[in-house]
Design a protein around this nucleic acid. Structure first.
Lengths: 339, 339
DNA sequence: CTGAAAGCGCTTACAG
DNA sequence: CTGAAAGCGCTTACAG
């Protein structure tokens, strides 16, 4: 009934042992070219593919990589996944997708050393604040791990220099003559110390001070990485009675929300308010958004490539931090301060 | 060296056989409550999880579901995946993600019956035009398959009524007094007969005729499902010298492109041009876009739930088509025809 | 260069 | 209710 062709079918048909088939098909040495060719032809003819489950048992390698992100939605994660998937697939790895959503059980499940270890050969973790225990569990797993996003002690990661991102955005606004520059970003409820927003703000503060401006705390408003948060952030600024001439948003989605809300309140962008975001989101050009661009897909590719390399090498490579460059893209939401 | 706890460790510690451990942990009958409790406790204490690979060998079930989409990017696919992942994870299935990108080899690889069959228990296929051979291969696989999007003969699917979508959008514009209504959608290079655009256009033609308007072929411009295609579509319309008072775009992303390009050419939306899209893309409200909304995440959930059910049942269920309702959402890009 | 055989970690009739 | 044993489909020393 079950019509799957197995290695024994190929072996029988080729008149060799299953051991030879296994070796021939995986390109292992110690097989004559004639035999290899014969086995390959028959395997192709029969449409034989080795069962990953069966192969995983003796080898301990599943041929799959787990890609973990905090939530399923969001442009950033999708883009990282896209880049990662590209190189993982090209290298013959299956991509197992996990997201932590809000359910705490999910998180426990995913970080369950045993479970993950038995399912995937390696792990790609996206922009996820990790607790100390989780990092320990990851190490205990003894599987290659790559992080895309924040630097996590002891783990390899691919990232951008967030302080520099903050400097670039703020410097751009300062050069346009702005001095009352707001910052929208940071999550007051984040107790995991996720450093992206704080680092971007650090660059912002630094550049302001470098031109003799003492940053006004009232100009910093919290915002997670969503459009809705951008709207709330600008409303908060307005409620405080603040009227900055420019705003640096921690991400493009936040910037979009800020622009939406500013316009709804009758402000013109950029005439009354210059706005700069971060990412170069797929839709940012549609808004004419000035932004500090990062190539997120490329970050995914780089991380996946490094992971594949680690999966292939016998010795554990040292943790390594790869910093991908960012670039200011000036469009229409930022302009010289009038007057 | 390899510190993974296996079923034998649990058995030894509990003083029972591995068979009992296996039965106790999977909730199978024929285990005393006392024993089950004991085994569960010890398994928890040891952090034991059964290896999916090892379990797959005797059972033939991998515990994973493959989710296949044409390309990795795009809001639609991301949303379906999000919904599907939600219920798949909740039901204990791993999600294996494949995308076909442009590489033709990828396509062959994914539709390789043997391969997929050995990796996943079931298949969720997103909005993908399939060749006859591919459908055959899918059947030969003898695994449950769910399609989200087009109706494919012999396969179960979750879809929206695209003809009705076209009617709804066009009726809305007609009711606002418009008669010169353009349609942007359809891919002249599609030889697989992907029916989404044609069906939406069918509804558009039908409603126009129902109010005594003979559709002008010059008002139909091709557009794939991207913002860029929307821009090109509106440019094409302008190049033809056509000046419709309204436009129905096959998707919100196309609508966004149309609006962008129309405004760039000095037209006001909706004063000079009303635009209606389809989807209710996450960003559509930001553009004030009027649209025929579909709950894509819900479609993903429904398809995944149906798949899970099929995976659990012994008998193959009959192919079934589930039609999810759509709903007109009127925002600011559509208005009454002036005069 | 090739094969026989053990073993990977589970599940499942079969016996008791 | 419980266990001994065969078997799932591969890989890999080991022997030849």
């Amino acid at each position: 009934m079950c019509v799957m062709t197995g290695i024994v079918d190929v072996a029988a048909r080729a008149g060799v042992s299953v051991a030879t088939v296994s070796r021939a098909l995986r390109g292992l040495p110690g097989v004559s070219e004639t035999t290899r060719r014969l086995v390959q032809d028959i395997a192709a003819e029969l449409g034989y593919v080795a069962s990953p489950s069966a192969a995983a048992l003796p080898t301990g390698r599943t041929g799959a990589v787990a890609v973990v992100s905090p939530v399923a939605r969001g442009w950033y994660f999708t883009a990282v996944l896209e880049g990662a998937q590209e190189v993982l697939t090209a290298n013959g790895y299956d991509v197992l997708r996990y997201d932590l959503s809000e359910v705490e059980t999910n998180r426990r499940k995913v970080f369950d050393t045993q479970l993950l270890r038995k399912r995937a050969d390696g792990l790609l973790i996206m922009s996820l604040p990790l607790t100390h225990d989780e990092v320990q569990a990851l190490h205990a797993m003894r599987r290659p791990v790559m992080v895309v996003g924040p630097i996590v002690a002891g783990l390899s990661c691919v990232r951008v220099d967030d302080v520099e991102v903050g400097r670039t955005a703020t410097r751009h606004l300062v050069e346009l003559g702005h001095r009352r520059i707001a910052f929208a970003g940071g999550d007051p409820n984040d107790h995991l110390g996720f450093p992206v927003s704080p680092d971007r703000r650090l660059g912002y503060l630094e550049v302001l001070r470098s031109v003799g401006v003492e940053p006004d705390p009232a100009l910093t408003v919290p915002a997670k990485f969503t459009v809705e948060a951008g709207i709330a952030a600008f409303s908060e600024l307005a409620a405080r009675g603040e009227a900055p001439t420019a705003l640096f948003a921690v991400s493009d989605e936040v910037a979009m929300g800020v622009i939406y809300e500013a316009r709804r309140r009758g402000l013109r962008v950029p005439e009354d308010l210059s706005v700069v975001g971060v990412d170069d989101h797929d839709m940012s050009w549609l808004f004419g958004l000035s932004t500090v661009a990062q190539d997120v897909r490329e970050e995914g590719r780089i991380a996946a490539a490094a992971l594949v390399e680690r999966l292939r090498s016998v010795v554990d490579a040292e943790p390594e931090v790869t910093t991908v460059p960012t670039k200011l893209v000036v469009r229409e939401t930022s302009a010289r301060l009038p007057g």
